[in-house]
């Protein structure tokens, strides 16, 4: 499991639709990620704080993977039917799941009307994150909001000095922090310097716990493999093992947290089998997550489930 939770969606609002060029670059990014052995990917939509929500719940999420005309995911349900060929052009080599992520950048929390409607996003996006631009927003995100991720703008100055107490209280709650390495690869020296100071302070205040590393790449040339990134982050004073964890396990937890918010009631009772929680194929196919027909799908498969088998057997015994 190798994750990249930040593949930016080219458009930042609802009205404009992505042009063909932009879609092509996005497709190229995804295909190179596949080539670099990534397995779980999240496509990230970043919206400003004063954006108005679309009325229709289906339209809240503009990310449409069907536009990209992507190959089939590895090991998907459709894959088993016809032309099962893992090496051919028909399917990905490594990518198993593509998730959808929402990032709201907040400067003044009181002006942001989206925050009260965060529940509406639960059913549409897999991962919800916040990009605080001021100290107020950071405090609010850590203490009050029900989110998975906090990401900073790495090409600018951080909103405030990061205190260990604040950051680690967030990590204890289950909110992780994101380092996106794309600003390191830019030509501008100022941005590079900012990246170094920002990540250093983030690593220091979090004691290298609960960090995830993602690309945030705008073109496929900005992507790096796992080992390249570990080399880079070791330079910044992070442990080798921690660095690998922040590319594999911790993003997995972020996804699980986000999926559980939709698939379960307060992480107590979940619908579906627990191992199926990361599976978002059925919803993608239906393109309608609000509907309850998500409840039952491919009955024959479920009918053979172990639970039912035991029960049926016992009932038959009784009749005999």
């Amino acid at each position: 499991m190798l994750c990249d939770l930040n593949v930016p969606w080219p458009v930042n609002d609802y009205e404009t639709k992505p042009t063909l060029d932009q879609l092509n670059t996005l497709k190229l990014i995804i295909l190179t990620l596949d080539e670099l052995n990534y397995t779980h990917i999240a496509i990230n939509l970043t919206i400003p704080q004063n954006l108005k929500l679309a009325n229709n719940k289906i339209n809240v999420n503009p990310i449409d993977l069907k536009l990209l005309n992507l190959p089939r995911w590895k090991g998907s349900i459709n894959d088993q039917g016809h032309d099962h060929d893992s090496t051919g052009s028909g399917s990905f080599k490594n990518i198993q799941k593509i998730f959808k992520r929402l990032t709201i950048s907040i400067e003044e929390p009181s002006k942001c009307s989206l925050l009260s409607k965060l529940n509406n996003f639960n059913s549409v996006f897999d991962v919800i994150s916040i990009q605080p631009l001021s100290e107020k927003a950071l405090l609010l995100a850590v203490t009050n909001l029900d989110i998975d991720l906090i990401s900073f703008k790495f090409d600018e100055k951080l909103p405030c000095f990061l205190k260990h107490k604040l950051i680690c209280s967030a990590i204890e709650k289950g909110i992780k922090f994101e380092i996106s390495y794309n600003s390191l690869l830019s030509d501008n020296n100022y941005i590079k310097r900012q990246f170094f100071t920002n990540t250093l302070s983030l690593i220091r205040s979090s004691r290298s716990r609960g960090l995830i590393i993602s690309s945030g790449a705008k073109s496929f040339l900005e992507l790096r493999s796992l080992f390249d990134i570990t080399n880079l982050i070791i330079l910044l004073g992070m442990n080798h093992n921690d660095c690998k964890l922040s590319m594999t396990d911790i993003p997995g937890k972020v996804i699980l947290n986000g999926r559980l918010r939709y698939k379960s009631y307060k992480q107590i009772v979940t619908i579906d089998e627990f191992s199926n929680i990361l599976n978002n194929e059925i919803e993608e196919e239906n393109n309608n997550r609000e509907d309850s027909n998500l409840f039952i799908k491919d009955n024959d498969k479920k009918r053979k489930s172990y639970l039912n088998n035991v029960m049926e057997r016992e009932k038959k015994k009784l009749k005999n």
């Binding site: 009772v269 619908i271 089998e273 409840f295 039952i296 009955n299 479920k302």
Partner: peptide
Amino acid sequence: DQELIEFSVI
């Protein structure tokens, strides 16, 4: 007879 809903408890 044919359909069932599965849940899991954490």
